[in-house]
Write a protein that binds this DNA or RNA. Structure first.
Lengths: 342, 342
DNA sequence: GTGAAAGCGCTAACAA
DNA sequence: TTGTTAGCGCTTTCAC
């Protein structure tokens, strides 16, 4: 069923039907009701391609996910996108997903812009001095960054968690529990969040006058394998860490595996703390430090980002929007480095 | 830059330019070259909305992800979609992502179909007696199921792993290592994969004349929390399992956490085995049974599914395509129920 | 308050 | 081998 058919059925012009459906004020209330009733009766849905061609608005938002051969699709991105998707459908927008390897990145953005298939994009995983920001500004394509480029003080919209603060808090918590040797399993150094997380970690350690041991600070793709290897290495030292602060689920899985092995084989005993996503979603680690979190925090961030972007698209002249999400730690039961003390 | 402008620059009709760009045989080779050169020079990209309006083909595929409030966006789906996305862009297709809660499911499919924004869809997480299959057939929208509905012997296309066989193999492996009490952490019962996995598990146990203990068989959303609670419960029995077979990454994270706690507190000693995704992606569990896997297996499946769907769209009269992916287990070092034996 | 007609950017008959 | 024309399904002037 298309407009033509619907208006034929109603004995009205396409124009009137279109206006009625789009809530133009001038149409007679009676006809509007009649039209809307018929539309839902026949399950009429305007063809979004035709609409977008006529209006020049794609009614779609692009999400461009960087992937590389070692790291899986970051589950946090997936969660974030799920949240965004809900916001889009509420507003009648579609979500276009594109993946890109780093070498094709710029061309992917350029193509998307010139194809006109989206009205804006969400940029994931910003890097330090990320070239995508100026590229998008040049292309004049509205965007919101999921994260931030701290090296760029220019005007752009972003939504981010307070990586520094959340890692500061988490580290401080471990320190307060008595841990002095804490291993940090972090993302690759070029990613902004990893830099900020390190800063928070470092500050907490320094504040407590603890020295950093570079041997138990790790950077890399946030994979299960990397988590495993890093933790295994850390635990093999004669002086192993008593706690881990981990930057992702995936790594955490590997870290737990390594700890399991170490427990079994060497009797090594650690308390683990896992930082799990960009919204300071801390995992409940059982009887070791306990944090509450809901998965929905990530989805919420996705929704927020989507709404930010849509409002920018609606009113292009608005100043850049930014949103900093604070860490949400809730401390439950706690365990120090030496369990037998508790 | 659009067709009109480009053809003006070239002093050719839009038709000719269009034909040259789309490799119609009749155009003069010289003009084709000239046109293509100009197109790339001006970075001309056809407006996909206009194209799709003119051709009646959306040049887009929809992925519809079921989400619910407790389970996060399944990372396997994310990975699968990343693979599919690559296949689409190679063929000039876009990927439209939609999320749906179970109560709105049917209307989401209907809306997608009537909006005409996709040429086909991939259905994730099929259930037993899934109504979506007949719905899509009725809507006449090409589709491929990621998974299968075993209750439906009708003609439809799917790609699936051999859930039954892989869980059979995994269970048998654990049995061969000497385990007799194995806990199964599985997805919700209405999902096909969970049913099949249980079948494989059951068969291996029965073949070995081991009795199933319903107390250590769990069904539920594949979340970290559920994994934790299930494993904690299992480990609290006076006669705890010596091995776990787990249906997902997320649950595995919880299971490991529970084991960690149990190791610390009760000296409970388990070997873990984790089944991790729908492609029999088995995690290396360190010094306990070791399986090789690459993340790309899931992406590959996504690519395959995408290619299947595109070929169905190209030739709608082809018979349904199906693809069964076999489990890929590789046994490395192994550990029986009583580590001290090894 | 409603309708006729043009046009968004492209493709596809039909001509030439 | 190229061009003219109509039309995909919608919105949007401009009339009435």
């Amino acid at each position: 069923m298309n407009l033509k058919q619907l208006s034929a059925k109603l004995q009205l012009s396409q124009t009137t039907v279109s206006r009625a459906l789009n809530d133009y004020p001038e149409v007679n209330e009676a006809t509007r009701v009649r039209v809307k009733r018929a539309a839902s009766k026949f399950n009429y849905q305007p063809n979004i391609r035709a609409t977008s061609l006529a209006t020049g608005r794609a009614k779609a938002i692009g999400h461009i996910i960087p992937i590389n051969s070692s790291e899986v699709f970051n589950p946090i991105f997936a969660e974030f996108i799920a949240g965004a998707s809900q916001a889009y459908s509420k507003r009648g927008y579609e979500l276009l997903l594109t993946t890109t390897e780093s070498n094709t990145e710029e061309s992917v953005y350029r193509t998307i812009a010139s194809k006109g298939s989206v009205d804006g994009v969400i940029v994931h995983a910003p890097r330090f001095k990320d070239s995508r920001i100026s590229l998008l500004q040049e292309l004049n394509l509205p965007f919101v960054i999921h994260g931030r480029d701290y090296s760029n003080t220019g005007d752009y919209s972003w939504i981010d968690i307070n990586n520094r603060q959340s890692f500061y808090q988490a580290t401080k918590l471990l320190i307060d529990l008595g841990h002095t040797r804490i291993s940090l399993i972090n993302g690759v150094e070029t990613l902004n969040f990893a830099r900020r997380r390190l800063m928070g970690f470092t500050k907490a350690m320094t504040d407590a006058q603890l020295t950093l041991d570079q041997n138990i600070l790790f950077n890399g793709d946030l994979t299960e394998a990397n988590g495993y290897h890093a933790a295994t290495k850390a635990l093999a030292f004669k002086n192993p860490p008593t706690a881990f602060l981990v930057s992702s689920y995936m790594s955490a899985l590997g870290v737990r595996r390594a700890i399991h092995n170490a427990n079994l084989q060497m009797g090594v005993d650690v308390s683990v703390i896992i930082h799990d996503d960009e919204l300071s979603y801390f995992h409940n680690t059982g009887d070791v430090p306990q944090f509450t979190a809901t998965r929905s925090s990530v989805m919420e961030a996705g929704m927020l980002a989507a709404e930010m972007l849509l409002s920018i698209i609606d009113k292009p002249e608005t100043a850049p929007l930014t949103k900093l999400l604070e860490a949400r730690l809730t401390i439950g039961a706690s365990t120090g480095p030496n369990r037998s003390d508790t």
